[in-house]
Design a protein around this nucleic acid. Structure first.
Lengths: 162, 162
DNA sequence: GCTTGAAATTTCATGCTTGAAATTATCGGG
DNA sequence: CCCGATAATTTCAAGCATGAAATTTCAAGC
């Protein structure tokens, strides 16, 4: 606790690496559980869930490019996922008046109902998984995670409101 | 079906959900940066890096099943990644004496040298990305992340030493 | 010796993901 | 009008990931 600024303490880098490994491990564990629950209980996947969540939030629909930007995934990726969701009747493609290039994508009634159920279950799962985390720990985590997320060394842009 | 605990504050679940969303977002941002750095600087991918890291640690080699268990991915997945690493001369397949079913997999000299460079660069990237996290925050994060990782509600097993 | 079951791995079908290239449509000049 | 630049999207090839089915080998028991 006494090195103010001389380059960097050698252990600091090691400790940060440990944080990253723990972060990755914990996230993958939780994610794997969520994925499995989605598969077993709703016969769906996390990417599909993510897409439905975005469309649920923007009731008026999103253009394909807006959707891929919101989810921070590639355009081509969204094309495939939407294709399957349309086939399953959860999503609808609507032409944009006055621009034949773009397509608007939005939830169908069925999609809306399905996602409502999934979202409720999802919230329950997550709360159960994190049940050992007391409120103060949650506060600390949120603060630290935001710090990480705002690092200027990160490649990806972080403009949007999410 | 487990009964919800009676004395839970109503906002607690919401806050935990927020923690999860932040966790996922921060992890994906860091991961995306690491992936891009691996691609640009070493023309490789995170899954390949993970495999090399595991083999680097176990100098005497690992059986395919041990490898997939260590990385917590499916067997078939490892088969494909190893195939490509062998093609690139970074990994070697060795038959196991006395058991024609199994194969041992280990790094070649080239694989060892390549990974050494990658690991050093990787540590540098991560330390830079997390540079805004003071040591105290690191300690807190590690504690909380371990708490999450030990949740009994998680599906995946967490036996191994990693 | 056979048979039967378990173990180690591969194969397969399907879906997600990316970056790059191709396609189609819009828009602002000339 | 046409031309070139830009925008919105799709297509494509390659790799990653899964769970399930198929393959090959081993290890006992009878």
């Amino acid at each position: 606790m006494s090195m103010p600024q001389p380059g960097e303490a050698p252990d600091t880098a090691r400790q940060r690496l440990r944080v990253w490994l723990r972060l990755l491990k914990a996230t993958r564990l939780v994610e794997a559980t969520v994925r499995e629950n989605l598969r077993v209980e709703f016969d769906t996947t996390l990417p599909r869930f993510d897409v439905l969540a975005a469309l649920y939030r923007f009731e008026d629909g999103l253009k394909m490019s807006e959707l891929s930007a919101a989810l921070r995934v590639s355009n081509g990726n969204v094309t495939g996922i939407i294709e399957r969701l349309v086939t399953d009747g959860l999503v609808l493609r609507v032409p944009v008046a006055g621009d034949k290039r773009a397509t608007l994508v939005r939830l169908t009634k069925k999609g809306n109902e399905e996602f409502s159920k999934m979202a409720a279950a999802h919230a329950t799962w997550v709360s159960a998984i994190l049940e050992e985390l007391p409120p103060e720990a949650c506060e600390q985590m949120i603060g630290h995670l935001d710090t990480i997320g705002n690092s200027p060394k990160l490649t990806a842009k972080v403009n949007g409101d999410d």
